[in-house]
């Protein structure tokens, strides 16, 4: 068989830049996105783009410019968010988004530091960082996009996969129950806990814009469809079918105890704003106890020297 190859054409930089400029700036959200990065790599029907859109919309609603905000993300499909936003972003190693963001939030207290990461990154390898940051009440906003599996590596079982769900590493059904993320975040001490699916974009915008006003550790879980990794083995259909499923099976219960928000395969999903309390955050309690004590000690020494 004779194979015909297309002629190689040298890379035309000017034409590539013109193509980038042609599309960038058409959409009103493009001022928050890096030029030339859209279209993103996420699959058709993936809910990650919806969560990114709602985050940008919440920033626009609160009049937060890109230089007042920093986004830290881990590894995975959701970790790509850091590459798409046109602001100070950092793409950390696997599971270490929260330690990096903790340092950033303590060094720059007036910056809105958002951790944008997936369930496998935040709760599997970074689980301890997450619960200890919530215990200390560091001034962080965590947006966890939950798609029930490790999507980027090929749909392996994750700590959030429900009992009985099929993934590429559990072909006969998962034998372990999954995490209840809002309950975990509440038990660890988060001051704001909410869960929405991508079927509720307006509520998600409202929740994320509420977290910009809070000081302390806020946690928003966004349940997103994953048609390739989770939908196909579990016969949930394409992304659109999963969205319809969330619309039919989600039950809005604001203020419900987070312990009720267990997720079962093909079961009801309890969504809503569960917890909204106030607690002194880490930086204020650190300043009021340790820094002020050290300053008082330093003043005593100065007095002794002068005398």
């Amino acid at each position: 068989m004779k194979v015909r190859l297309r002629e190689l054409q040298p890379f035309d930089k000017e034409a590539a830049e013109a193509a980038i400029k042609h599309d960038h700036g058409l959409h009103p959200h493009d001022e928050y996105l890096k030029p030339g990065r859209i279209p993103h790599i996420w699959c058709p029907g993936c809910g990650l783009g919806v969560v990114l859109t709602t985050f940008i919309e919440a920033m626009r609603r609160k009049n937060i410019t890109p230089d007042q905000c920093a986004v830290v993300s881990g590894i995975g499909c959701t970790g790509r968010v850091a590459g798409y936003l046109n602001m100070d972003t950092y793409h950390t190693t696997h599971g270490r988004a929260i330690p990096f963001a903790t340092g950033l939030a303590l060094a720059k207290p007036d910056l809105h530091v958002t951790v944008f990461s997936g369930d496998g990154d935040l709760f599997a390898i970074g689980g301890n960082h997450m619960i200890h940051a919530a215990r200390r009440n560091v001034n962080l906003k965590v947006i966890c996009v939950n798609n029930f599996n490790y999507g980027m590596t090929g749909g392996q079982v994750a700590p959030t996969t429900p009992l009985g769900a099929k993934t590429s590493t559990t072909p006969r059904g998962n034998a372990e129950p999954g995490f209840n993320l809002p309950h975990l975040a509440h038990a660890a001490g988060a001051v704001y806990v909410a869960r929405w699916t991508t079927f509720h974009p307006r509520q998600l915008v409202h929740s994320i814009s509420q977290t910009f006003d809070k000081t302390g550790f806020t946690f928003v879980e966004a349940i997103a469809p994953c048609p390739t990794g989770y939908g196909r083995p579990n016969k949930l259909g394409a992304g659109l079918d999963e969205m319809k499923f969330y619309g039919e099976h989600s039950e809005i219960r604001n203020g419900a105890p987070p312990g009720d928000a267990e997720i079962e395969l093909r079961g009801k999903i309890v969504v809503g704003t569960f917890i909204d309390v106030d607690r002194p955050d880490f930086l204020t309690s650190y300043n009021s106890r340790i820094v002020s004590a050290a300053q008082a000690k330093g003043k005593q020494k100065e007095k002794v020297k002068i005398a």
């Binding site: 959200h29 996105l33 993103h40 993936c46 783009g49 990114l52 859109t53 919309e57 915008v205």
Partner: peptide
């Protein structure tokens, strides 16, 4: 504005 919010690709407004 629901289409703007729900589009994952920033393709409609």
């Amino acid at each position: 504005g629901l289409c703007t919010l729900i589009c994952p690709e920033f393709a409609i407004f």
